[in-house]
Design a protein around this nucleic acid. Structure first.
Lengths: 219, 219
DNA sequence: GTCTATAGATGGATAGAC
DNA sequence: GTCTATCCATCTATAGAC
């Protein structure tokens, strides 16, 4: 924009954005598949088909790249969950039932995990960040509980007869159910059940999770 | 034993065993606290107060040390769970109810996680191995489902009216509840609940988990 | 802006002295 | 058997050529 040769700028900007996006996507993919410490800047730039210095030029450092991916994806996921919770509240005069609150919590990560969904890799990245993330990521997770507070408050309103402490623990159990949906765990379950569990049936899995967790909240 | 100077052997063997144990314990502790890739052989030997070559001398390599810890601890945990399941079966003529099956699944890792328990660090190591472990560990987890098969079969017998597929998925949900019991997740929950959740009350947490999961199996 | 070449640091593993 | 000194591979980050 400040460049007088404006007919050159679009090409340059596009090339820059394309390189940055290629690095971003390659990094997200490799981190999700192989773990954060097992992927080098060389792996990422080779996968993206760009030169080695691109990571530092566009993101500053390997850790900053990781954090950029983390922040973008968690932001998207949290917004999607918040929107579903808001819609559920609107449908029920501000007091949605437990099942619809849990659906807003479960459905977005499950839909992302659909084998037919491009975001499949993003959700695996987020799950990995919870255990392998940098100190910066863990601090961000630790401090940004405002997103979960909305869910906790909705659940407390839906089950006012339960002690608040009990609701928090049960929310913790539900989050454990979500975080366990990793490739390796699905594979293990598939092996254990002799092939009876089908990973691809996202809506079926959502129903199963809601049945289980809703009953747990009624106890 | 084959050494004619038998009065020297005990001292040497003890020293050897002591060094090996020091390496083992320091490694388990550091891996559990900081992750596998973030701990170097130098960190381990420094923490153990032994020389750098000890890891390779006693265990062959860093990865072999990791795997030795993994195999020992998972073996201990699985035996403890199997024993509790066996005892539950004996109490109920071979057909224990869902709650006692789940107690055999939940109680050992929870008791290990008690802040007053020396094994607190071991269970964090195992949980970390599930997501950060080497290919060798993941293969071992993948192939050793015999331990879980006993629990799956007991649950199928306790709920014969449910489709087997449903029982497998619900077992998967229960395992997610267990695997989510990490330091970082407890801290986050404590923060979210404004300090209402007490991590130290192991028996209370066990009851809460059993209430939630048992109700989920009744759905 | 892009890319090559390389600096600088750290890692696992091991040879060889004792 | 124990330990020091060192090898060699690999990593991130960056300087400097174009």
């Amino acid at each position: 924009m400040t460049d007088p040769q404006s007919h050159d700028a679009p090409e340059t900007e596009e090339a820059q954005a394309a390189t940055k996006a290629a690095v971003f996507n390659a990094a997200e993919r490799l981190f999700a598949l192989h773990g954060f410490q097992n992927v080098s800047v060389r792996d990422i730039t080779a996968e993206a088909g760009v030169n080695l210095a691109s990571v530092n030029y566009h993101f500053g450092s390997k850790d900053a790249l990781l954090f950029a991916i983390f922040r973008k994806r968690t932001g998207e996921l949290n917004r999607e969950r918040a929107r579903m919770l808001h819609e559920a509240a609107e449908r029920h005069a501000g007091k949605p039932p437990v099942r619809e609150i849990l659906e807003a919590l479960f459905a977005p990560p499950l839909r992302w995990g659909d084998p037919a969904n491009d975001r499949r890799i993003s959700i695996q990245f987020i799950i990995r960040a919870r255990s392998e993330g940098t100190a910066e990521m863990r601090d961000a997770l630790q401090n940004d509980v405002s997103h979960l507070e909305r869910f906790a408050n909705a659940l407390i309103a839906a089950r006012p007869e339960l002690p608040r402490e009990t609701v928090y623990w049960r929310l913790h159990f539900c989050l454990g159910m979500v975080h366990n949906n990793r490739f390796a765990e699905f594979d293990r379950l598939h092996h254990l059940s002799g092939g009876a569990t089908r990973e691809g049936d996202v809506n079926g899995l959502l129903s199963r999770m809601l049945d289980f967790a809703e009953a747990g909240f009624l106890a």
